[in-house]
Nucleic acid binder design. Sequence first.
DNA 1: CTAGTGCACTGGTCGGACCAGTAGGCTCAG
DNA 2: CTGAGCCTACTGGTCCGACCAGTGCACTAG
Lengths: 247, 247
Amino acid sequence: MGGPRFEPVRTVRAYERVVEQVEEAIESGSLSPGERLASERELMVQFSVSRSTVREALRVLQARGLVRSRPGDPNGAEVLPFTPAALHKSMTTLARVAELSLAELVQFRMVLDSSAVLLAARLRTEEQLAEMSQAVARMREADEAGFGAADVAFHDAIARASGNKLIQVCTDVVRSIVVKLIAEKIAAAPDRRALMEQSIRHHEEVIAAVRAGDGPLAARLSRKAMYDYYAAYVPVAERAALRALLE
Amino acid sequence: MGGPRFEPVRTVRAYERVVEQVEEAIESGSLSPGERLASERELMVQFSVSRSTVREALRVLQARGLVRSRPGDPNGAEVLPFTPAALHKSMTTLARVAELSLAELVQFRMVLDSSAVLLAARLRTEEQLAEMSQAVARMREADEAGFGAADVAFHDAIARASGNKLIQVCTDVVRSIVVKLIAEKIAAAPDRRALMEQSIRHHEEVIAAVRAGDGPLAARLSRKAMYDYYAAYVPVAERAALRALLE
DNA sequence: CTAGTGCACTGGTCGGACCAGTAGGCTCAG
DNA sequence: CTGAGCCTACTGGTCCGACCAGTGCACTAG
């Protein structure tokens, strides 16, 4: 039976074809963020499909964070700049459906953050170093509400200084998931003030190591800082996996 | 003007409400993988919306990888077990839209893989160790086509042994993106055979370190292995960022 | 020249219709 | 009685036409 090898045919829905074409146009750059798609009624002419089909395609594109539509807008749907929103959404789903433990999430943060800081120690510019210092300064001055925001700014500066956009995005996504998970616990911590003080000291040590260009030290300090800050919220049995990263 | 502080109202579309309810049911576990949703015509009764609205909601849920529908199926849409497909999709989009360089992707793999191997060195079971050895054995015996599959199996065994599902999923997603990016270049490499040999040796060294429980060594070897295998495909100017991880 | 008002469009939702496909019950020949 | 085949009652995919509330712009009235 040496006949031609046939491939299984995949029935492809009309709306998927529409999605593919628009997606291709966006990812190839022929549609840039800020530009507008034609109106639904015109798209149905261009694609020769019904409006229902166009709309289902737009729903998918919207779910992927590529476009946004607004009722009454005389222009069509807007092509969006990339946001990690879709990534965030699917990772949040992963966290819930795959039952990711807080320990796994924190461990992942330790990995990403320490790697970012390791890279930042070599690649950081003076401006980025200044940003980190400013963020820590704000942590010191801030009340309990502003503390978190300044902390985010610090870690974001680190992530940007790593020069790796993927690290930056993933750091951001995982951090927000972790923060959401334990926001109320953190706010209720009795020794909140002490934790904040300790965290600030740790951050300053990390900055010092980054300034000195000692990546491995900075990475180690960063892991330690993360562990000390979050370990209390992780079940005792799972802390060992976190400590495995502390050497 | 000390009146009540009003919150801005967010107009929420009908199909979003439907998505929210189904998503909540799935993530909370009241709908398990394999179970079926009601048919579209029944859902429109349950939610008191039109079929168009139900269908748009289902498109979104499908785009997020939560359900799948099949024409003619007497049961409704099927609730899917979690797959990283949605994560994969959004990360692929990120790679294209944010113009992630190959260097960034490989760097991310180095970070994840070395962290996984660091953890695996402490947490691996004997079975997982055996899996890694078997995978390397298959790499040795395999032809050029089977080599890649065995390599995937090896890295997946490492990732599983790390005990962190998030690391496992991200490793998988990023690897497939990298592989797709340079599949043709790898196949066309003139010294393919030599690269494969070297890669096998590196893998065996990593296994030895994992068996010995020397996590830091295993991690270092793993980064080196990844660098040696992929550096040739990374533009020279960007290799420095990769080497920053080699210490 | 400006403030206000329509108007012509937009997306969101609805209802009905048809088609191709599926699964399972039913019939009928053996 | 048993098995193979058909038939029917569904399914999802697609199309059409309609209505509504919202938006931006041009035009008008002051």
